[in-house]
């Protein structure tokens, strides 16, 4: 871990300024990922801009039933917020599927969006990694890759995005609110994270110096027809092999509208509106679910150690849609898969 400077920002404007004043600054909030990466010499910032005192820690009602979540709202606070529990239970469920209580107490909403991959090679500076050091290569492609991506990969990077929250936010069609040297922007969630293509070192479409201020979530009309199903190598405190966020607007036994996003399979939460459209107007049957799953997974590429993820994801999608259709969302406290 290198030495670095530190500024505690008193306002958003001050934070933006402080960041711009250093060639290699990072914003720090909960620090649950950044500090970890600094300890590994993966991140070596020359300056940290502490944003924890900024007034971005409120959950507020927006118009038309939307919810505006400040970037500094903690994961635990958000998961147990009454409005989230009542109106966005899918979000609460995804939050509680992630990390541990200690980490959820520290981690923030904005930081969660900016989590970096858990790829072993990215985390180990003794090895090459295109994401960490562009141009050095990707040993994961032929190495240890059972946790790696099957969709949207490139020959330069097969890393996955590790967040659970983001998978739910993708399904909920959230918008990321950012501000920066060039003013405010609203970024649709689907456009926030990017695929690795030939620039795997860039995770998101944030411009340098831009700061996430809030996430806006439009009203969801799934009622009880939602679920967050996370499959992993142990029953808690593990990153997803595959996770599924599903929400269904139902009319009797028929699906009116569907939202479906996958975690653990790509460099970003994986969504395909065409797969969701296949479910619209269809009966809530395994047959319908399988068709949507097959479409969502079309184009999946297995690597040496992660081919199982294709079958696992297919079945997880079917199970998740079954849970959503039945109105019996996966419990995150009972560790059995329903």
């Amino acid at each position: 871990m290198n030495r670095f400077g530190y500024t505690r920002a008193g306002s958003v404007a001050e934070a933006i300024q402080a960041f711009a004043a250093h060639p290699d600054a990072r914003f720090i909030a909960g620090g649950t990922n950044l500090v970890d990466l600094m300890k590994y010499d993966v991140e070596t910032p020359d300056h940290l801009v502490d944003i924890t005192r900024l007034p971005l820690d409120q959950v507020e009602d927006g118009t038309d039933g939307a919810l505006r979540v400040g970037a500094l709202v903690g994961n635990a606070d958000l998961a147990y917020d009454r409005r989230v529990q009542e109106r966005f239970p899918l979000l609460a469920s995804a939050l509680l599927a992630g990390a541990s209580p200690q980490l959820r107490n520290m981690a923030t909403t904005g930081g969660n969006l900016l989590q970096r991959t858990r790829c072993h090679y990215f985390y180990d500076p003794a090895t090459p990694c295109n994401k960490r050091e562009p141009g050095t290569g990707c040993p994961a492609i032929q190495g240890v890759n059972r946790n790696h991506a099957i969709l949207g990969t490139s020959e330069r990077c097969i890393a996955t995005h590790p967040s659970d929250l983001c998978v739910a936010l993708a399904a909920l069609e959230a918008t990321v609110l950012v501000t920066g040297p060039n003013g405010d922007r609203r970024i649709p969630f689907a456009e926030f994270h990017r695929l690795p293509d030939d620039r795997p070192e860039i995770d998101t479409t944030l411009a340098p110096g831009e700061l996430i201020t809030a996430v806006e979530i439009p009203a969801a009309d799934f009622g009880a027809h939602h679920t967050y199903l996370k499959l992993r190598d142990r029953h808690s405190y593990a990153f997803a092999l595959v996770s599924v966020a599903a929400g269904l607007a139902m009319d009797g036994g028929r699906i009116v509208r569907a939202r479906l996003a996958l975690g653990g399979v790509a460099h970003k939460p994986w969504r395909d509106p065409a797969a969701e459209a296949l479910l619209s107007g269809q009966p809530a049957t395994d047959d319908s679910f399988r068709k949507a799953a097959d479409h969502l997974l079309s184009g999946a590429v297995p690597r040496s150690g992660n081919g199982f993820k294709i079958a696992l994801a297919r079945r997880a999608i079917v199970r998740a849609l079954r849970q959503a259709a039945a109105g019996t969302p996966q419990s995150q406290t009972d560790k059995r898969i329903q």
Partner: peptide
């Protein structure tokens, strides 16, 4: 311990990726 045999190195060398049982298990 997951080895990358090309690099001759254990790759999951931390508690996030080298799994031991947690309470839920």
């Amino acid at each position: 311990a997951l080895h990358d045999h090309k690099l001759g190195r254990v790759m999951n060398h931390n508690f996030a990726e080298y799994h031991i049982p947690v309470n839920a298990d």
